[in-house]
């Protein structure tokens, strides 16, 4: 079926079927990449924070917890100021690119990953670390086993991080600009269609967004629940 015809038939207005696939793919790509980076940054840092005892640990945790509630639009503003042509990183030419969106969303998702990693490891019996080391584990082997032991809450942390970026619109709009075929993602497209009064298209995009979030979380939930529950 012709994409334009599909869009007209389904009340998607000016939104073409090809655009829908492109927007969905870009949403998934940006959110997936941002989540992956937040995992790479947040899991080690969160683990270090959970297992370490130092003087300013409480303050650091307070910053992380504040970071979990960072308003995306403020993150967007900060990243935009950095990447703006006259900003410190303006020469990189990243403003209004998917890369800028990934940067902003990593900043949003990483505190979530760190905070929930600290909470996940904090639930373990503190003597488990000593027991593992007492069995001859190296520091790295101990950390890997602690991750295994807290795999359920760690996957929940990953889901929360993904959820925080797939659903945000403020930062994506500010640093991406909602440029068609370039930086338009599901959330920014919903805002656009709503502002045009194309509520049918906005609702359809919303359904796609919900389905996407459900699909990813279903996969992670399946991964979370499998294996020996012990």
């Amino acid at each position: 079926m012709d994409p334009q015809l599909l869009a007209a038939d389904t009340g998607l207005g000016s939104l073409a079927g090809g655009d829908l696939l492109e927007i969905t793919a870009l949403s998934l790509f940006i959110s997936g990449l941002a989540t992956a980076f937040s995992l790479l940054l947040g899991l080690p840092f969160g683990t270090w924070l959970a297992l370490s005892r130092f003087r300013s640990r409480g303050l650091t945790l307070a910053f992380v917890n504040t970071g979990m509630a960072l308003p995306p639009v403020v993150v967007g503003l900060f990243v935009a100021m950095m990447l703006w042509r006259s900003g410190p990183l303006g020469d990189l030419g990243l403003m209004y690119t998917p890369t800028a969106m990934v940067i902003a969303e990593v900043i949003i998702a990483t505190p979530v990953m760190i905070g929930l990693t600290v909470a996940a490891l904090g639930q373990l019996d503190p003597r488990l670390r000593l027991q593992l080391l007492g069995l001859g584990a190296s520091r790295w082997q101990m950390v890997v086993w602690l991750w295994r032991e807290s795999r359920l809450p760690l996957l929940a942390a990953l889901m929360a991080a993904f959820g925080s970026v797939i659903s945000e619109v403020g930062a994506a709009m500010m640093v991406g600009g909602n440029i068609r075929h370039e930086t338009r993602v599901l959330t920014t497209a919903i805002v656009l269609e709503t502002s045009k009064g194309a509520f049918g298209a906005a609702i359809a995009l919303g359904v796609v967004l919900l389905f996407l979030a459900f699909l990813v979380n279903a996969v992670l939930t399946w991964a979370q629940q499998r294996g020996p529950r012990g």
Binding site: D125, L128, L130, G134, G136, W145, R148, P228, G230
Partner: peptide, 20 residues
């Protein structure tokens, strides 16, 4: 680490891992 690999340790709680 070399030393700890020559000892064995049992704590008051078994602290078994969530595996077999």
């Amino acid at each position: 680490l070399a030393y700890r690999r020559r000892i064995g340790m049992v704590m008051s709680d078994p602290l078994l891992l969530s595996t077999s």
